[in-house]
Amino acid sequence: MTEVPEAAAVGPPPAAAAERPTVLAVDGLNTRFDTPEGEVCAVNDVSFRVREGETVGIVGESGSGKSQVFMSVMGLLAANGRATGSVKFRDQEILGMPPQKLNRIRGAHMSMIFQDPMTSLNPYLTVSRQMTEVLVQHKGMGESDAEKRSVEMLDLVRIPEAKRRIRMYPHEFSGGMRQRVMIAIALLCQPDMLIADEPTTALDVTVQAQILELMHDLKTELNTAIVLITHDLGVIAGLSDRVLVMYAGNIVERGAVREIFYGPQHPYTEGLLKSMPRLTGTEQTELPSIPGQPPNLQHLPSGCNFRPRCAYAFDRCRVEEPAQRDIGPGRAKACHLDAL
């Protein structure tokens, strides 16, 4: 399992990627929520970089903290949430920045799209209004220029008859088309970074394929850094250059996409990959599965968070929380085991 098979390189080689300028630098991010039952730690000492033009996939299950990391980055935490640590966008500290100042960055230089395109669009406003607003606000464009640019953007995300459809309301679009509109809005100001939180989860398979194809083309055309947050390992496999795997608020493994899929080094990553039913392959009656449930963040187990579900767990895992350690260039894991 440890050897990465030789094949056509997927994504940029790690060395080239490392030289690219950093867009986003997250260091020691902690996100906590006050709840009636006490404090919940949703993100625990998370650090990573996103570089120009690369696509970083964040995988994890519900409650892993994958969305909360980027809600913290975007300053969109719920009222009972607090984020500490450091988040630098283009070398500028943005964590704790007042909203007015932050608004000059989000929407213009970094933008986010969400799972459900219907709830992220305002049903009372035409698409045109929702698009031009962004350009007028951030770029100081006039209405007619803004509309011209918006139509171009809708063309870019392949909405047919963009000129006519820009006058329509969100409910007049299908789910896939709405997600295209959201992507168009997010890309209007040519941001350095696009955060896509489960962008295709609410869509049907054939429509998902269209959106993935679109994101793939945009990635090559626009050189925008993309952060792809999803639970779907297939989506990650197709688009990401690098992958971060999260479990119970921690990054448990990171590496280039082929390393993660062909040589997982954390038992959780390995378990996830094995438990996915496949479209091809040999007969099997029983799917390998990870026993137990994801932990309750209020009652985390002692030592390693994954320990109660881990087939490899030994005494040390009970007493000592594994720190993240480097296991190769751009490769790290939080596990006491040296190799799987």
């Binding site: 094949a7 056509a8 997927v10 299908s174 896939g176 088309m177 049907d204 398979v205 054939t206 429509v207 998902q208 394929a209 269209q210 993935l212 194809e213 779907d232 390992l233 297939g234 989506v235 990650i236 496999a237 197709g238 996409v257 082929r258 899929f261 062909y262 990959l273 996915m276 496949r278 479209l279």
Partner: peptide
Amino acid sequence: QALISAVPLPDPDAERAKQRIVLTGDL
């Protein structure tokens, strides 16, 4: 055929190499 080819495979090489039948339009 389109449905099966649209399923994203949890395998980077296979997923990037495969010929996907992308359907145009919506239901």
